[in-house]
């Protein structure tokens, strides 16, 4: 299983919205990196890696939900879930067939036909799962999922930039107020209201 990539540049003080933009950006990249040759049933690890990447992306979309515009976030999350379900439809028979193959390799000859009867069923499900997955991948492409994820990241980034600009502006105004009082000490203007003289002891 692919290890989750570290989300660089996050520290405990990073504003939540900025962390959201970074985390979703990294997890979305991981998802699309793992989408190559995912329909190849000879290499079942590809589906597994992409499924795990989908879960991780879904997780950060849920964790950081308040940082995104709800009307953009909701449909993206829904599409990621749909993709995860389609990957599950392929992955479940993959895993079951693998376990059955391991068992079939060691059982007595007399037990072979029964295991094969079950394997036939699982192979049909694997094929159907692959078709479901192909359709979901196509839907992700036509629905511009990658672009919509980028738009979500940009929206969170913008809101973090605006909040920081506002905080800088407030700090500058506060510095100006302190300078007006002449002391410049923190808290000097704390108990003043607009157009009022400084309260002195």
């Amino acid at each position: 299983m692919a290890r989750a990539r570290d989300v660089e540049g996050l520290d405990p003080h990073t504003p939540f919205a900025r962390a959201a933009a970074r985390a979703v950006s990294v997890r979305a990249e991981e998802l699309f990196e793992h989408s190559a040759d995912v329909l190849d049933t000879q290499d079942i690890e590809r589906v597994h890696d992409m499924r795990v990447a989908t879960r991780r992306l879904r997780a950060v979309l849920e964790i950081f939900a308040p940082c995104f515009p709800a009307d953009q976030h909701r449909p993206v999350l829904k599409d990621v879930k749909r993709l995860a379900d389609a990957l599950g439809a392929r992955r479940d028979p993959d895993v079951q067939l693998e376990a059955l193959d391991r068992l079939a390799a060691v059982v007595r000859k007399v037990e072979g036909p029964g295991l094969e009867a079950f394997a036939v069923r699982l192979r049909a499900e694997q094929e159907a799962g692959n078709e479901t997955l192909a359709a979901a991948l196509q839907e992700a492409r036509t629905g511009a999922l990658a672009e919509r994820l980028r738009a979500l990241v940009a929206a969170a980034q913008r809101s973090a930039d605006e909040a920081e600009a506002q905080a800088d502006e407030d700090a500058t105004a506060l510095d100006g107020d302190r300078a007006d009082t002449g002391t410049g000490k923190p808290g000097d203007g704390d108990i003043r209201v607009a157009d009022e003289e400084p309260v002195t002891a």
Binding site: P12, P15, F16, A17
Partner: peptide, 8 residues
Amino acid sequence: LDPETPLA
């Protein structure tokens, strides 16, 4: 949860 407050 508040987007403007720290991640931690």
